[in-house]
């Protein structure tokens, strides 16, 4: 029986390690190359004069402004919902809640856990639903008596504010924001939930023994720790809103100078055979998305666990 030399074992292991890292890298590099190739193809397809001619179009400038404004409003609304919901979901699944439930009967604990999973699944529905279905569902919702009432009241509200042009929600600017918000909020909630799950809840519990109310423990102790997650959730919601197309198409329509946003500009240009215009509009979308992503990474850099990573 031949003796195995330690040196040869080391060599074989080094070769296998090399092969392992190369194989792992190949998959990532392939996908990275695909993204870069697509961007390069877009940039090569169009030129500066296409871009300037697109930007000289008042309708396109309107769609850019509407995109920027509607995305910002949708992202703010998403945060408004995501911060409390994410906190609640994270803390309902925390160790302290498990401890509290430990005093209850097994049936009660099971019921609580089922309810939590059910709510969690419901909140994920906008993420997994096909975008067109989200649009159709919103449209149908606003055809119900309650939806119509709400639609009409919103029109009255805008009229009283001096915006008589906005006659309600459906096929108006509020529909654009609502369609963007519906999907973006689900992503923001997930981000905020992950953020709060990573924040230890023990300092909050100590704060309560020091005399703080639950609101004070949340606002003074938990929330300041979550600022990177808040930035990430806002960015994700904003970027998601910017790329939203399906629900806007169905629920808000593609009326030029009315409900047209950048993603629908791409669609309309493509639909009317203006491929160069569609690509130029796409590049504006890409540039805005890259700016936002880079800014987020710069702002959130320095986190202890996930440096600049959007969770």
């Amino acid at each position: 029986m031949s003796q195995i030399k330690p040196k040869s074992i080391r060599q074989v292991r080094a070769q296998w390690d090399g092969l392992f890292w190369t194989t792992m890298s190949v998959f990532g590099v392939f996908y990275l190359a695909l993204i870069i190739a697509m961007l390069v193809a877009d940039f090569r397809f169009t030129n500066w004069s296409d871009m300037t001619s697109l930007l000289s179009d008042a309708r396109v400038r309107f769609s850019i402004w509407l995109s920027l404004i509607s995305c910002t409003i949708a992202a703010i609304l998403s945060l408004w919902v995501a911060i409390p919901t994410g906190f609640l979901l994270a803390r309902l699944g925390s160790e302290s809640m498990t401890q509290r439930l430990g005093q209850r009967s097994p049936g009660c604990r099971r019921l609580f856990n089922w309810a939590r999973y059910f709510i969690d699944t419901l909140l994920d529905i906008p993420i997994v639903l096909p975008p067109l279905v989200v649009g159709i569902s919103l449209l149908v919702l606003f055809q119900t008596p309650v939806g119509r009432w709400f639609d009409q009241r919103t029109g009255d509200l805008f009229a009283s504010l001096g915006y008589a042009g906005i006659r309600g929600i459906t096929y108006e600017i509020p529909a654009v924001i609502l369609a963007q918000f519906t999907v973006a909020a689900a992503f923001a909630i997930r981000t905020m939930r992950n953020t709060f799950e990573q924040i230890d809840d023990r300092p909050e519990r100590v704060a309560i023994t020091l005399g703080a109310s639950h609101y004070q423990a949340f606002s003074l102790v938990a929330l300041p720790q979550a600022w990177r997650g808040i930035v990430a959730a806002f960015t994700l919601a904003w970027a998601r809103s910017l790329g939203e197309f399906g629900p806007i198409l169905i629920f808000a329509g593609t009326a030029r100078m009315k409900t047209e946003v950048l993603s629908t500009t791409v669609y309309l240009n493509f639909q009317f055979g203006n491929l160069r215009g569609a690509v130029s509009a796409s590049l504006i979308l890409v540039t805005l998305a890259i700016i936002v992503l880079v800014l987020t990474r710069l702002i959130t850099l320095g986190g202890s666990s996930n440096k600049g990573v959007i969770v």
Binding site: R202, V206, T209, G211, A212, L220
Partner: peptide, 21 residues
């Protein structure tokens, strides 16, 4: 009685200081 009204000071094992203060 809620913890906030018990007048009990608590020092956990890991001190659990508030990271942003």
């Amino acid at each position: 009685t809620p913890p906030a009204q018990r007048q009990i000071g608590y020092v956990p094992q890991d001190s659990s200081l508030f990271p942003t203060m």
